[in-house]
Amino acid sequence: MLAILAKDLRIELRTREGVSSLAVLGLLVLLVFQFAFPERPTPEAAAAALWLAFVLAGTIGAQRTFLLERENACMHGLVTAPLDPAMIFVAKMLGNVVILTVLQFLVVPLTVVFFDVAPTSRLGWLAVVCFLGNVGFSAVTTLFAAISVRIRAREVMLPLLVLPLVSPLLIAAVQASARLLGDGSAAEVSVWIQVLAAFDVIFAAAGWLLFEYVVRE
């Protein structure tokens, strides 16, 4: 499992294809939002822009999860390897988590600057929300990227499959971030963090159990 993860990350480190294109894409989404929003944006708008940049860039980035494996029938090799398919899922999901974390490290500061919000003392909580949102999103997209890579019209299918399913995650992440970027109480944030954590647990488990049925030849 670690070998797959290390391999994917090494490819990424050497080419920097995924991260660099995602970073620019995230920046662009933030810019477009800046143009679309009124002159004095609120913390709510900042949170919305932050997570939309993440989801849009993340969905496009996740397309790549299994694209590399298509070349030279690598996926076939992986599946026939003496390895629990669930492990492939975990490795691929962690790979996505790492790449999306890099994206977040870029998008979050940019949001703070562009939207002129100050997450002063609650940076740690914001990091928790970002991490939980990242894990849940990666779990769903990894599972469905494995599906979309095997069917026609895959560019359209992945967002179609993923976006409705991540809507609770998106609502929770935006609400929590809006309160952290503005001035919400800790109690308000904690309930959303619970929703995010529940989402992560449920979908990581679902991916773990169902991945086998997706990759079975």
Binding site: V140, I147, P164, P168, I171, A172, A206
Partner: peptide
């Protein structure tokens, strides 16, 4: 797989839209 995952999503959707 989508049919199962969609069903798992329902309680989360319910909770989040209520909140």
């Amino acid at each position: 797989v989508l049919g199962i995952v969609g069903a798992l999503d329902i309680p989360l959707i319910m909770i989040s839209v209520r909140l």
